[in-house]
Computed example of a mutant assay.
Amino acid sequence: MKLKLGILDQSPVVMGDDAASALTNSINLALFAEEAGYYSLMYAEHHGVEAYGSSSPELLAAVVLSKTKTIQVGTAGIMMRNYSAYKIAEWTKFLGTLYPERFILGLGKAPGGLKDAIMALNSHKPVVLSNMETKLEEIIHHIKEENELYGGLIAQPAHLKDLPQIVWLGSGMTSAREAAKHGVGYSFAAFMNNENGVEYTQTYLREFDTNQYTSSPSLQVAVAVSVADHIETARHNAYGMAYQFLQSRQLVSPEAVLPAEIVEQRVLGTDSEEEFFTILDRIIIETPQSVSRRLQQVSEKYNTDNVLILCNMHREENRINTYKSIIKNNK
Rank of each mutant, 00 (worst) to 15 (best):
M119F: 13
K135W: 06
I285L: 09
G37P: 02
V167R: 02
K135S: 10
I154C: 11
I140S: 05
I284H: 11
E286D: 13
Q296S: 10
L60I: 05
K324P: 01
N318S: 11
K67W: 03
K135D: 11
E138Y: 10
A190W: 02
F191H: 15
A62M: 11
I231L: 13
Q297R: 14
K181D: 02
G183D: 07
Q72M: 10
T304D: 04
A22R: 11
S84L: 10
I231P: 00
S248Q: 14
N318F: 07
I104P: 00
L65I: 07
E286I: 00
Q247N: 09
T287F: 04
L295K: 10
V291A: 04
P57Y: 02
L5R: 09
S272Y: 12
I139N: 07
T233M: 01
A20D: 11
E137C: 04
M313L: 04
S216T: 12
E34N: 06
S40P: 01
L205R: 14
V14C: 11
I78L: 14
H314R: 09
H159K: 11
T174G: 03
E273V: 08
G113F: 04
K144R: 15
G240R: 09
Q244K: 07
S55R: 11
V221Q: 00
R293Q: 13
Y239N: 05
T322N: 00
E274Q: 15
L59A: 14
Y323K: 04
Y150E: 08
E178I: 15
M80C: 05
T270H: 05
E146N: 14
S226C: 09
E58L: 11
I309Y: 05
R249Y: 02
E195I: 05
K328A: 13
K93F: 11
Y150Q: 10
Y204M: 02
E207H: 01
L310H: 06
W91R: 15
P259L: 08
V223W: 03
S215D: 15
L121V: 09
I309C: 02
A51T: 04
A158M: 04
D9H: 08
K144F: 01
S21Y: 08
E207F: 00
H46P: 06
M80T: 09
M80D: 02
K331W: 01
H142A: 13
E34R: 07
Y43E: 01
H236V: 00
E232F: 01
S325I: 03
F191A: 07
M1Y: 08
R319A: 14
Y213S: 07
D281C: 06
I285N: 07
E255L: 15
Y186Q: 02
P259G: 09
P259K: 11
S21M: 12
R266Y: 10
L41R: 12
R206Q: 14
A36S: 14
K331Y: 10
K181Q: 13
K93A: 15
T210L: 01
K109V: 03
M15S: 13
A222N: 09
H236A: 10
T270K: 09
V184A: 04
E34V: 06
L308P: 03
K331C: 04
V64E: 06
Y99K: 08
S84I: 09
K144S: 13
S123E: 12
Y99D: 03
S226Q: 08
E146V: 05
S123C: 08
S171P: 00
I118W: 03
A158W: 01
F208M: 10
S171D: 04
M173N: 12
Y302M: 08
P217Q: 09
G6F: 03
E145H: 12
R315L: 09
